[in-house]
Write a protein that binds this DNA or RNA. Structure first.
Lengths: 122, 122
DNA sequence: TGAACATATGAACGTTTGTTCATATGTTTC
DNA sequence: GAAACATATGAACAAACGTTCATATGTTCA
């Protein structure tokens, strides 16, 4: 096969067949970007702790700040990120804003992640 | 109740009972940090694309570089990150290093993530 | 209306992160 | 052994990120 060389890689691509196979199954760029975006939101210790707390109960900002031992401001900033990612929702009652999980997928994703992390024997 | 005020929050904590309930179920700090760490690794477009490609087939570095249209160097850097997180494994065959998924959890996590992303109606 | 409070937000700062470039390592083949 | 190749790696740089601080918004209650 003569066209085994590609500029992109600037080196010899070895497995032409595999490449074609994989190229056909790549989802829309948009989808994978969104998935990465979702994981990026989950990929912060403060936010995972917030979400984990919300697995247990609906909570207001001040409660969360106390439980996590962090400032109200940083919790508030992170809740905004979580909300934009549609991971949490909120309802307002007077001065107080209560946050809770937006849907059940989040917990499933976490469960899988816990399983992976707890697999130290491999 | 007199001890409803806490320094940590510097404001009035409203839901004493909820806080106690949540505090008892917080997992070891270490565990949640590891989970966040895992998500952080998944939270990059290049790495999600690499993993997605590996869902289909075992691939060498040069193949991946070509499929994703990126330099060999950046793919190699990211594969190292993925390997440290135990998300991929590799085997060597002469000059060529083949990468593949380390375990099946990764795909499950992705499936859940896709579901979440595809829920635009909510 | 004013004080107290819960939350949100903008700017600033230091840190972390992903890519690039140059180069090193290790393998194959002649 | 030298050339060609596949991969790995270190330093450097710009971009993205999380926290802090100061302050704004909006609500309650006297």
């Amino acid at each position: 096969m003569t066209d085994e060389k590609f500029e992109m890689c600037s080196q010899t691509t070895i497995h032409h067949d595999v490449i074609q196979q994989v190229q056909q199954t790549i989802p829309k760029d948009e989808t994978l970007t969104e998935v990465a975006e979702l994981f990026k939101v989950l990929g912060d210790r403060t936010r995972t702790r917030i979400l984990h707390a919300l697995f247990e109960a609906e909570m207001c900002v001040c409660d969360l700040a106390y439980v996590l031992g962090m400032t109200q401001s940083s919790i508030s900033h992170q809740l905004r990120v979580l909300k934009q990612a549609k991971l949490v929702k909120n309802r307002k009652e007077g001065k107080v804003v209560y946050y809770s999980l937006a849907d059940h997928h989040v917990k499933h994703i976490f469960d899988q992640a816990f399983q992976h992390v707890n697999e130290d024997r491999n």
